[in-house]
């Protein structure tokens, strides 16, 4: 995208800020509605068709609400961390291939360079740092406990998450997300032309990878059974406890964007990105990410919440070794060694 006007439109409208924000609200609706139907409830119903505008209404309502900064809080940190929680995942979505503006069938991201996968993984970790600072600076005991739990959880899931994300990169021989997508498209095409045992093995190994990846994402997104850092009944929404009004609106929107980012990463790394027959790339992107959101929602209503010690121990005992084995299998299959 060399044309500055196209770049501006891409950043501000599609597939940049406006699209991602709207899509995040859509994902929140999908998630809420699916969870409600799975739990024998109705979910959002009255605002817009089947309550589709409810997330937007909630967002606007929170913007109007009174914004309180506790006297005991460390004010600059407390005030700026919601902005970080909102902006960092939003910035990371610019690296995701969704749709090119210059051609209907292209999907190069707004920003793309060798190593952008590492940047995305880094940005996702930085969000947790903002979360930790926000909770810790709120001057509330529950906030402090929630912040500590968020940091502890990161120590548990961050390593398998990054390890598994590297798997497709090794196979594609590139750390650039768009190249990983291209590799998936070419290898799927080759596989359909000439099926091979090696292809089936790669699909199997990557399936283990995607399972680990989704479990780590449940923790990253603070969904059940890993909503330990905001456990409502134990520590009253943990690190978010003192946030209200505009800051809470930003935090909620940040959570939705994180969900989009997570679904987009699963799509780009394991499900072939926005590529697909007949429909244009952005349609496939929406279909695939919505499917990922549904999977995440379905998993999150199935379980009771783990305790922090159970979660950390489980991650180190099972997820990390499994992730290491998975990467070793990927390396063996790719023929690097």
């Amino acid at each position: 995208m060399s044309n500055p006007l196209t770049t501006l439109v891409a950043v501000l409208f599609f597939p940049g800020l406006s699209f991602i924000l709207t899509y995040a609200l859509w994902c929140q609706w999908v998630s809420r509605k699916a969870a409600a139907r799975l739990q024998n409830r109705q979910g959002p119903l009255h605002t817009g068709w089947q309550g589709t505008l409810q997330p937007l209404a909630d967002f606007i309502k929170l913007l109007v609400n009174e914004d309180i900064t506790p006297a005991a809080a460390d004010k600059p940190v407390f005030n700026y961390s919601p902005i970080a929680v909102f902006a960092i995942p939003l910035a990371a979505t610019f690296l995701i291939p969704i749709q090119s503006l210059t051609s209907l069938w292209g999907w190069e991201p707004i920003v793309s360079f060798q190593g952008d996968l590492i940047i995305i993984l880094f940005l996702m970790s930085v969000v947790i740092l903002a979360v930790f600072l926000g909770g810790w600076s709120s001057g509330n005991v529950f906030g402090a406990v929630g912040a500590t739990r968020a940091a502890l959880m990161m120590l548990a899931y961050e390593i398998p998450l990054s390890l598994v994300a590297i798997g497709p990169a090794i196979l594609a021989g590139s750390l650039q997300i768009s190249e990983i997508v291209d590799w998936q498209v070419t290898s799927v095409n080759t596989f359909f032309r000439a099926p091979s045992i090696q292809g089936i093995a790669i699909v199997g190994v990557l399936f283990i990878g995607v399972v680990i990846y989704i479990m780590c994402l449940l923790a990253e997104l603070e969904l059940r059974p890993f909503d330990i850092s905001e456990a409502e009944t134990e520590i009253v929404h943990g690190w978010q406890v003192e946030y209200s009004g505009k800051k809470l609106a930003l935090l909620n929107a940040g959570h939705d964007i994180k969900m989009v980012l997570a679904a987009a990463l699963v799509t780009s790394l394991f499900l072939g990105g926005p590529a697909g027959p007949i429909l244009p790339p952005f349609a496939w992107f929406i279909l695939k990410t919505t499917f990922c959101v549904l999977v995440l929602t379905n998993l999150s209503v199935l379980f009771a919440r783990f305790r922090i010690d159970q979660m950390v121990a489980g991650a180190w005992k099972y997820l990390v070794p499994l992730a290491v084995l998975q990467v070793m299998a990927v390396v063996a299959l790719s023929g690097v060694i």
């Binding site: 799975l38 739990q39 024998n40 409830r41 059940r224 059974p225 909503d227 456990a231 409502e232 009944t233 209503v301 199935l302 379980f303 009771a304 919440r305």
Partner: peptide, 16 residues
């Protein structure tokens, strides 16, 4: 009790 351990799905089912 299900709600307290974070298992809201069971909570909704039992209450139904």
């Amino acid at each position: 009790a299900a709600h307290e351990i974070g298992f809201d799905t069971m909570f909704y089912y039992v209450w139904r």
